[in-house]
């Protein structure tokens, strides 16, 4: 079994002392429910995915922990990266990660996600996943056995219940950092359809490092992503088309 603690995860600890007793109880309750209901988007990037079916089915039965697979990023809580991530794949991983609803958790499975593993020398793989997105948990191994996966998931559940699995907030607060790594890898024209900055503003997750050089670079070429709000088109009647 791998000791996951040796891979540091950047987590910003928010102030948890505010609010009255009710809201604290409510928060506790929500955190408990969050930890007891985890939908995995299993995005199979590599060989590690083969270890998930045993974890799901009768031998280990993830559902007894409240964990079940989901298809679309909108529905999912956990993004499982199950193996080496090529540059091309990573673009999709980023897109998918940004489309997930927070709180969302990233678990890197297999050594490849930690340091590139046996693909260390490959020009086409991303070596260190947590440069590009906050990773809440690594489960190392090549490949880790289902027991390790289950244990890892249990650890994540404990972290969630304790309010410690907040990597997703880090992504908003230090977006410029992650974007910088992404731009370095994908080029300066890199853009996802999700407007992370606007989301950070909307949800009050704006941090001092949300904006920076890299986001400025992004803004130079970013296509507008405002929602198509309903327009009544009131006012003077149209100038008639000839």
């Amino acid at each position: 079994m791998t000791d996951t603690e040796q891979f540091p995860v950047r987590v910003e600890q928010p102030d948890r002392n505010g609010g009255n007793i009710f809201s604290r109880v409510f928060d506790e309750l929500t955190a408990f429910c969050r930890s007891r209901s985890l939908f995995i988007l299993h995005y199979c990037t590599g060989c590690g995915a083969i270890e998930l079916p045993p974890a799901m089915t009768s031998r280990f039965d993830m559902e007894r922990l409240g964990i079940s697979p989901m298809v679309s990023p909108r529905q999912a809580d956990i993004l499982l990266i199950t193996g080496y991530v090529s540059v091309k794949t990573l673009k999709r991983v980023m897109l998918t990660y940004e489309q997930m609803g927070s709180p969302k958790y990233v678990i890197g499975i297999c050594s490849c996600t930690v340091n590139g593993g046996m693909y260390w020398q490959s020009y086409a793989t991303a070596k260190k996943l947590n440069d590009y997105m906050p990773v809440d948990l690594y489960i190392a191994g090549c490949m880790p056995r289902p027991e390790a996966v289950i244990t890892g998931l249990r650890q994540l559940m404990d972290k969630i219940a304790a309010g410690e699995a907040n990597g997703w907030e880090d992504y908003y607060r230090r977006y410029d950092y992650y974007l910088g790594h992404q731009q370095r890898l994908f080029g300066e024209t890199w853009q996802t359809p999700t407007d992370v900055i606007a989301e950070a503003r909307h949800y009050g997750l704006f941090g001092p490092e949300t904006l920076g050089d890299h986001t400025r670079l992004l803004e130079q070429h970013q296509a507008p992503l405002e929602a198509l709000e309903m327009q009544l088109g009131l006012g003077a009647p149209d100038e008639v088309k000839a």
Binding site: L29, T30, C33, R34, R36, S37, T57, S58, D61, E63, R64, G66, D77, G101, S102, P103, E199, Y203
Partner: peptide, 21 residues
């Protein structure tokens, strides 16, 4: 399989409503 715990449907719903974004 063992299947989900007793309150699993409720957990799911509360979690989903409690999503931050």
């Amino acid at each position: 399989r063992v299947g989900p715990p007793l309150l699993q449907p409720l957990y799911d719903i509360v979690k989903l409503y409690g999503k931050r974004t």
